[in-house]
Simulated assay, not measured.
Amino acid sequence: MDRDIQNIVESVVPGGPVSTVTDVLDRQIAGLDALEMAARSRPGLLHRAWSSVWPVLAAIAIGIGAWELVVLSGWKPTYVLPGPGQVFPQLGKDLSESAFWSGLALTMRRAVVGFALAIVVGAVIGAVVSRVRFLRVAFGSLITGLQTMPSIAWFPLAILLFQLSESAILFVIVLGAAPSIANGLIAGVDYTPPILLRAGKILGLRGFALYRHLILPASLPAFVTGLKQGWAFAWRSLMAGELLVIIGHHTSLGVRLEYARENIDAPDMIAIMIVILVIGIVIDRLFSAADRTLRARRGLDPS
């Protein structure tokens, strides 16, 4: 036994006494702890904020520069394609008007209501279809087909059913977003580990309780991805609807965009397009933040 201990000592500290083993091992363990703490350490808040902001600022600068170069090339006259020097002052003027904010509020109200309805419809369809094999075979391809169908193709039917009304716009928003949300939930349920399902059944989970406490939490990452994609479809459907379905004197963002086109007011038209783009980017960042938080809580965030 003493010979074995001496061999271990020689392998750790060649030629060293037995008393140094503890010190050497302590230093090695301390080094491993330091490496682990360094791997776990995260940069400061300012550094993380700057790391996420500067790529966006760089992309904006590149986009504005390319835009200005196209304008300077003379490809189109400035009354058709104005440059940043004309558009951004118009954007500032729009932002100073109360009518603009009223139109923005109307657009966002439609977006929130339509997307909320789409979540309810998509979640119910996805939950039922994912667990009933007959419905999966019968309607699985149909849901995917509805997802790939252009939203604007629904508007003739929507106007026929609901005339020029809020219902027509909400109808198309739901049809545009619900299939993506349903497919996201279906994919999440499909990738739920079978061992979790067996464990849940052993614990007595059945029916709605199985969904509530096991399947839905397990499928949440894929469901969030479906929500993100569903929002993109909902936002595009809403913009198309506001361009086609003009209701009385309700001056939404889409209506302002159409009026600017009719009046050949290119600076105002592009300014409104920038607002629509910024809203889409902000919502996308919110969904990305929710996805990162979810992955971090489940230990899936490599950072």
Rank of each mutant, 00 (worst) to 15 (best):
V224R: 06
A105D: 01
A232E: 04
A123R: 00
A158E: 01
T225K: 02
R3H: 10
D4T: 11
L106N: 10
V53A: 07
G176F: 02
I5C: 00
L142S: 12
P193D: 09
L104Y: 13
D23E: 14
D301K: 05
K76S: 11
L185T: 12
S252H: 10
V56P: 00
L45M: 13
S165H: 07
V120P: 02
A49I: 14
S237I: 11
H213S: 11
G145I: 13
D2V: 11
S41P: 01
L72K: 15
R295P: 01
L106T: 13
G63A: 15
P217F: 08
R236S: 13
L244W: 08
T20G: 00
P17S: 13
P194M: 01
D94Y: 05
V255S: 00
S288G: 07
P150F: 04
I246G: 04
R3L: 10
A187P: 03
L238R: 11
D94T: 04
G204P: 05
V71H: 01
K76A: 14
P77M: 08
F171M: 06
P267K: 10
Q86M: 15
G280K: 12
F115T: 14
V224G: 05
S130E: 08
L185S: 07
G188T: 11
A105E: 03
T20I: 11
F208M: 14
P55S: 05
A118T: 10
W101L: 12
A39M: 06
F115A: 05
S237R: 06
R48S: 13
D26T: 09
D301R: 09
I283D: 00
V18C: 01
L300K: 13
P156Q: 05
Y191N: 15
K228V: 02
T20F: 00
A266L: 07
V245G: 04
V124A: 05
